[in-house]
């Protein structure tokens, strides 16, 4: 006989209104990424246009990221993008990887790697933005 009550065992297993969280944030990040992706592509082409030599590329990048709105949109693009990537990869693993422990292990590694690179990207944007 367990000392844990049925309620204690049920807690934390996910209640109603929480099961759709993965599905919901995948859509939420997808919607955010629509305008951000279009902005990113146009901005990168704009940056190519602003740089007329190899040396000017760095200056164009620094000038682009020193605009607070551009830096904000870039960080948004990165944060939503890396998160959306992690959510999507999880679904692919769930469908194709057996056994379960391997699927979970690969998912954990993916999440941590994407989180690490996402943080590194955002730190880099901030460093360029602040003229580091």
């Amino acid at each position: 006989m367990s000392l844990r009550t049925p309620v204690a065992r049920a807690r934390g297993l996910g209640s109603a209104k929480e099961g759709a969280h993965h599905w919901w944030v995948q859509r939420l990040t997808a919607v955010a990424l629509i305008p951000l992706t279009i902005w990113f592509v146009i901005s990168v082409i704009g940056m190519i246009a602003a740089a007329d030599s190899a040396d000017a590329g760095y200056a164009a990048m620094a000038s682009w990221m020193s605009n607070p709105i551009a830096a904000t949109l870039m960080i948004g693009f990165l944060a939503f993008g890396f998160y959306h990537a992690a959510l999507g990869m999880q679904v692919v693993y769930e469908d194709y990887i057996e056994p379960k422990w391997l699927e979970v292990a690969v998912n954990v590694v993916t999440r941590l790697v994407l989180a690490f690179f996402g943080i590194a990207s955002i730190v880099s944007v901030l460093m360029i933005a602040f003229g580091g």
């Binding site: 620094a62 990221m65 990165l78 890396f82 994407l114 990207s121 944007v125 360029i128």
Partner: peptide
Amino acid sequence: TLGTLLIAYWLIAAA
């Protein structure tokens, strides 16, 4: 997803 790692490389290089 693999491409995001290249974006990260590009940004880290810029920084």
